[in-house]
Simulated assay, not measured.
Amino acid sequence: MTARPDLRGDVAVLVPAAGLGVRLGPGGPKALRLLSGEPLLVHAVRRVAAAGVGCVVVAAPPSEVEAVRELLSGVATATVVAGGATRQHSVSAALAAVPANFEIILVHDAARALTPPSLIVEVAEAVRGGHDAVIPVLPVVDTIKEVSASGAVVGTVDRSVLRAVQTPQGFRRRVLAAAHAAAVDEHTDDAGMVEKLGITVHCVPGDEAAMKITRPVDLVIAEALLARTLAS
Rank of each mutant, 00 (worst) to 15 (best):
M1Y: 07
D6G: 08
A12R: 10
V13S: 05
P16G: 04
A18V: 00
V22P: 03
R23M: 13
L24F: 00
P29N: 06
S36T: 05
E38R: 15
P39M: 12
P39C: 09
V42H: 01
A44C: 15
A44V: 03
V45Q: 04
V48T: 14
A49P: 00
G52D: 12
G52Q: 13
G54M: 05
V57S: 07
S63V: 10
V65M: 13
V68P: 00
L71H: 05
S73F: 00
T79Q: 10
A82K: 10
G83C: 07
G84W: 08
A85M: 12
T86I: 01
Q88Y: 01
A97M: 07
F102H: 11
L114K: 12
P116Y: 06
L119T: 13
A124E: 09
A126L: 04
V127K: 04
V127M: 06
R128M: 04
G130Q: 06
G130V: 02
H131P: 00
I135G: 00
P136N: 03
P136I: 02
L138A: 03
T143G: 01
A149F: 05
G151L: 04
V153W: 00
V153H: 06
V161T: 13
R163G: 06
Q166H: 06
R174C: 09
V175H: 00
V175Q: 00
H180V: 01
A181W: 01
A181T: 11
A183K: 04
H187N: 09
G192H: 09
V194Q: 06
V194L: 05
E195T: 07
L197E: 10
G198N: 09
I199D: 10
V204K: 09
G206P: 06
E208Q: 08
E208I: 08
A210D: 04
T214G: 01
P216H: 12
V217I: 11
I221V: 15
A222M: 10
E223M: 06
L225R: 15
A227Q: 10
S232H: 04
